[in-house]
Amino acid sequence: MHAKTQVQAKPQAPGIEVKPKQVSHFGILFEKVAPLYTLLLVLWAVALIEWLWAWKIAIPDPIYVTLLAAAMTVYVAVRTWSDWNHLIALRNRLNEQSTVREFLDGLRGLGYRVLHNIPGDSGNIDHVIFSTHGVFGIQVVDRRKTADSDNRIRYDGAAVSLNGGPYDSSVIDFANARSKQLQRLIRECTGAELPVKAVLLFPGWTVESAESQNQASVWVLSPKALPMWIKNTPESMGGREVRHTATELSAYLANYE
């Protein structure tokens, strides 16, 4: 039995979409520490006023405010430094999500219907593709890559191993749960019982999978491999059914509160 470790695969908050644009880490950093810099500026302004008072009439004593401002300066510097790597990683993850979204939107040229951020009772489904080859519920896994490794994923059809680490099946269970959630939602919107293929996408990773993945309940792929996997899946829906299902789910999104 495979040992389990935790792989992060967090959906976005319901109803919130990642817009297809690049995210500046300087902008993220500014938003995170702007209140600290504002407080720091105020403290130094007060310290300056105190010194001006001291030069004029020798009261009040500016030393205490100056020491407080100096201490705050050290704190802000340490906080900024400690947050920097985290913010860079966050920027990269947001940009990867945006890149995947743009890539999937490009599949509309193949006649596919693509929706994003489908809210449900237990969280968001990142992306959904409707095609004559079936319905595909897609989750994007944010997993930090390292410069000193090959960033490879091994998938045996039941669990994944990242960079030669222990196999983990929790992310597979997560994808299966989301696909069942999407299946229930389609049934509620259309009354039809349609199978949903669960897909996990790992942006920036090389996926090595066994042949058994063809029969596995979940596909584990890099984003660029997805179109070929869909194309190689036998057709199971007519064009009218694809359009109807996508339209009904779009109406659900439009009315979701």
Rank of each mutant, 00 (worst) to 15 (best):
K4A: 12
T5M: 10
E17T: 11
V18P: 04
K21N: 10
E31M: 09
A34Y: 12
L43Y: 08
A45Y: 07
A45T: 14
K56Y: 14
A58N: 12
L67T: 01
L68K: 00
A70I: 14
M72V: 10
T73S: 15
A77P: 01
V78M: 08
T80L: 03
H86Y: 10
H86K: 15
L90R: 14
N92Q: 12
L94P: 04
G106H: 07
G111F: 07
V114A: 05
L115Y: 08
H116M: 02
N117T: 09
I118W: 06
D126Y: 06
S131R: 04
V135Y: 06
V140I: 14
R143A: 10
A147N: 12
N151W: 05
Y155L: 01
A158D: 12
Y167P: 03
D168P: 01
S169I: 03
S169C: 04
N176E: 14
K180V: 11
L185A: 09
T190V: 02
G191W: 07
P195N: 10
A198N: 06
L200C: 01
P203K: 03
G204R: 08
W205H: 08
A210R: 14
E211R: 13
S217I: 04
V218R: 02
W219Q: 06
P227Q: 09
M228L: 12
K231N: 10
N232D: 12
G238N: 11
A246F: 02
E248Y: 02
